[in-house]
């Protein structure tokens, strides 16, 4: 019993120190999803890779801080930021008004349009509400694509998935008639062996900025203006010194930054 008690005491002590450990290091902890290739993804040895990761590393070099990465599921990524599990989100998060109520954003670091993909033998002709009436569309939940799909395709069934790879798998195996996602993410999927089933149907048009936002930015906790300013000047710096283009060209054949703002 005495041993059991001691173990219990030791365990509760460990728990307290772990649970209330304060995170006040000088390193910047960056949260990302790890399920959104080619922007961020996990490898079999547990490494995070992708455009977001390379950009974040470049920004950290520019700001002269040490960065560590944390993988976090998409639907809990903003709560996790607010709870202090990391200090910034670099995960292709679009700058939208609803999110701005909860977090502060840097300027955009890229902007690519939304698109729909369908099986190659699909009879669908277009991407309007009428074209897709009665169909089942898969989208990753709590993304701008999801918000657009649930507002626009009101005559279709919109199914929410935890992340993009699941929706892609269900498109490939025929559970879905279409998926909506970032065009770059869709293209990556279509170029892989699993995506051989499918093709891009088209891009919804217009893509309202109230829903999609001006592009993907870096999210930080509300009120951390200092960090936002540093991030903004770092983004400008890597745009100017060619670092951005180097990373861009490693992943894409075109400039994903979109129009200069």
């Amino acid at each position: 019993m005495r041993i059991a008690l001691r173990i219990a005491l030791a365990a509760s002590a460990a728990l307290l120190t772990l649970g209330v450990a304060q995170a006040q290091e000088t390193t910047l902890r960056i949260g990302t999803e790890g399920a959104y290739p080619p922007f961020n993804n996990l490898t079999s040895d547990g490494q995070l890779v992708g455009f977001d990761i390379d950009i974040a590393k470049a920004l950290c070099d520019e700001m002269k801080v040490k960065c560590t990465f944390v993988a976090q599921d998409w639907d809990g990524i903003i709560p996790a930021l607010q709870a202090g599990k990391f200090d910034a989100i670099v995960a292709s998060m679009s700058i939208t008004p609803e999110r701005q109520e909860k977090v502060d954003f840097s300027h955009k670091y890229y902007n690519t349009p939304s698109a729909l993909a369908v099986p190659k033998d699909s009879t669908l002709k277009g991407v309007t509400k009428e074209d897709l009436a009665g169909k089942t569309i898969g989208v990753a939940t709590t993304t701008t694509h999801f918000n657009y799909a649930s507002k626009t395709y009101t005559d279709s069934t919109v199914k929410g998935y935890p992340s993009s790879p699941e929706e892609q798998a269900d498109l490939a195996n025929g559970r879905l008639d279409a998926i909506e996602d970032d065009i770059v993410v869709l293209q990556q999927f279509l170029d892989s062996p699993d995506g051989a089933c499918c093709k891009i149907l088209g891009q919804p048009s217009p893509q309202p900025v109230e829903i999609f936002g001006p592009g993907a930015g870096i999210a930080v906790r509300k009120g951390e203006t200092d960090l936002v300013n540093k991030l903004n000047s770092a983004i400008d710096a890597i745009r100017a010194n060619g670092k951005y283009k180097e990373i861009n060209d490693k992943y894409f054949k075109f400039d994903v930054f979109g129009a200069e703002s």
């Binding site: 728990l15 772990l18 649970g19 304060q22 995170a23 006040q24 709870a83 202090g84 599990k85």
Partner: peptide
């Protein structure tokens, strides 16, 4: 300015 981190193991 403190942040609390409850990691998923704990």
């Amino acid at each position: 300015d403190a942040t609390i981190d409850v990691n998923s193991f704990v």
